[in-house]
């Protein structure tokens, strides 16, 4: 085995690695990766794969949400298994019939419905959803917002929030969902916000706050952005691309993107 990097280079690479999370300056042997970085990569991939397939522990999540003083409803999409959820995005966007009936029985007038969906990383919402809601729910409640019962969706994609908000009678859908796991972040949560969703709603009608996790957008910061965005939506009665232009000029520098449809990254 040949060690090609000089000592000086080792120092240089450890400096450069502070500039990027990219796997730069990896030790190699011949043309190939040395054993250490090869196994590092396999570990990261194994964690991401585990995150995709890990089931949501609904009972634990309900217990963690209990302190918010809201009723919590456990529901499911029309996808019956993890494999079906991955292969049939259309089923993951629809609610199961029994869930529709259950939600309809809670119909009232609400300003916002918070939805927690496992998406592509149950671990993300398992770890972060209760923390973010712990900040945002009291904030909005103090401002007089009528908040719908919390809804948990198993095998759910972003669009399940549309049906849920409609069934409950809520003006805004705020979906907290596990994002597609990357190697550096198997537990990244996204928040997708939609004003008065309807059957013709598309991803261009949503706004998104991405990368919510302790090493990304932190809980309190995410909660403030969420609340800020919800207020803007309610004031202007719109969401999506139209709202994005405005948010670029927000005084607090909130970095909120319109959820542009992207085949590869669509949740």
């Amino acid at each position: 085995m040949s060690e090609d990097r000089s000592l000086l280079d080792d120092e240089m690479w450890s400096d450069l690695r502070r500039l990027t999370a990219a796997r730069i300056g990896l030790r190699r042997t011949g043309a190939s990766l040395a054993t250490g970085p090869l196994l590092d990569f396999k570990l990261a991939h194994a964690r991401a794969r585990d995150a995709v397939h890990e089931p949501l522990d609904e009972a634990r999540l309900i217990a963690e949400l209990a302190g918010l003083g809201l009723e919590t409803i456990a529901s499911a999409s029309a996808a019956e298994s993890r494999k079906q959820f991955l292969m049939r995005p259309d089923l993951g966007r629809r609610l199961a019939a029994h869930s529709e009936q259950m939600l309809a029985s809670h119909a009232a007038r609400y300003d916002v419905a918070f939805v927690i969906a496992d998406g592509l990383s149950a671990r993300a919402v398992q770890q972060h959803a209760a923390h973010v809601l712990g900040f945002v729910v009291p904030m909005l409640r103090d401002e007089g917002w009528r908040i719908a019962p919390l809804v948990i969706v198993r095998h759910g994609r972003v669009a399940t929030g549309d049906a849920i908000a409609t069934l409950l009678g809520a003006d805004c859908a705020a979906v907290l969902i596990g994002e597609r796991p990357g190697l550096s972040a198997p537990d990244s949560m996204g928040a997708y916000l939609t004003w008065q969703p309807a059957p013709h709603t598309t991803d261009a009608d949503r706004n998104c706050i991405s990368n919510i996790r302790p090493d990304g957008i932190k809980y309190s910061e995410a909660a403030h952005k969420l609340a800020h965005m919800l207020r803007a939506m309610r004031a202007r009665r719109i969401s999506g691309v139209q709202l994005k232009d405005d948010s670029d000029r927000l005084p607090d520098g909130a970095n909120i993107e319109a959820a542009i449809p992207d085949a590869g990254k669509q949740l």
Partner: peptide
């Protein structure tokens, strides 16, 4: 892609190695 791991797009491709 450095180490086959694209840290922006969140997918795995092929590496310099």
């Amino acid at each position: 892609v450095p180490g086959a791991d694209d840290v922006m797009l969140g997918y795995q491709s092929t590496s310099f190695h």
